[in-house]
């Protein structure tokens, strides 16, 4: 494992921890899109089906369990916890996220590394992850005051994607037969979706003002 991959996984882990921290200690999910969280729960459930068929390493297994468990529990908290769910911006979080799933499934049936159930599900999870952040970005744009934790959550998620791109470049040049077009293209699309947010985040950080996205 190279440094980019490890740093990518760690920023992903931190992003989840920041979100759980917000939910557990502040008992608030204000500014967090349930639509995006539901998509992530579906992304990890469909991607990690190989948990039962392929053993890679203890690290790999533990991380998969963490991402599965955390994404499902975040959805549970936002939907059912009696205090947390009250802070959910339901009226603002209106992205029709289920509409994203059908094109992703069709694309996965057409473009996959192998036409098997696990591989189609794997490709589906990659396509869905690429667009899963969209409801969150739309919600951020509608929310007037973005709190620090929410801003940091999205920043960490974006950093995780960017580090994975560096990891692929590194692996391409250092490993033989390391070619994964589906992962790369969907990963790059996903990273580009964060570019706009990054721009405004760093502007507000540089100018030392509260993050506000243009309407």
């Amino acid at each position: 494992m190279n440094i980019f991959r490890l740093a990518g996984d760690m920023t992903h882990l931190f992003s989840v921890l920041v979100l759980l921290l917000k939910i557990h200690t502040i008992k608030s999910c204000a500014g967090i899109s349930l639509k995006t969280q539901e998509l992530y729960a579906i992304v990890f459930t469909t991607r990690y089906l190989d948990l039962f068929t392929t053993y890679i390493s203890l690290y790999n297994t533990i991380m998969k369990l963490i991402f599965l468990g955390s994404s499902i529990s975040i959805v549970w908290y936002m939907r059912h916890h009696k205090v947390v769910r009250r802070s959910y911006d339901k009226d603002q979080d209106t992205f029709r996220h289920y509409l994203l799933m059908l094109p992703c499934l069709l694309l996965a049936l057409l473009i996959n590394e192998k036409f098997t159930f696990l591989e189609v599900m794997w490709a589906f999870s990659l396509y869905l992850e690429a667009v899963a952040i969209l409801p969150q970005l739309v919600l951020l744009q509608r929310t007037r005051n973005i709190d620090n934790l929410t801003g940091q959550y999205v920043l960490l998620l974006g950093a995780y994607r960017a580090l994975y791109v560096l990891n692929w470049i590194y692996r391409y040049f250092t490993e033989e037969n390391y070619v994964h077009w589906i992962t790369w293209v969907s990963g790059i699309v996903q990273t580009l979706l964060y570019a706009d947010f990054f721009y405004y985040y760093f502007q507000s950080w540089k100018n030392n003002v509260k993050l506000q996205l243009p309407a």
């Binding site: 890679i56 590394e113 192998k114």
Partner: peptide, 10 residues
Amino acid sequence: SVEKDVHDEL
């Protein structure tokens, strides 16, 4: 190779 078929990323 065998490694190519295994998804070792998260």
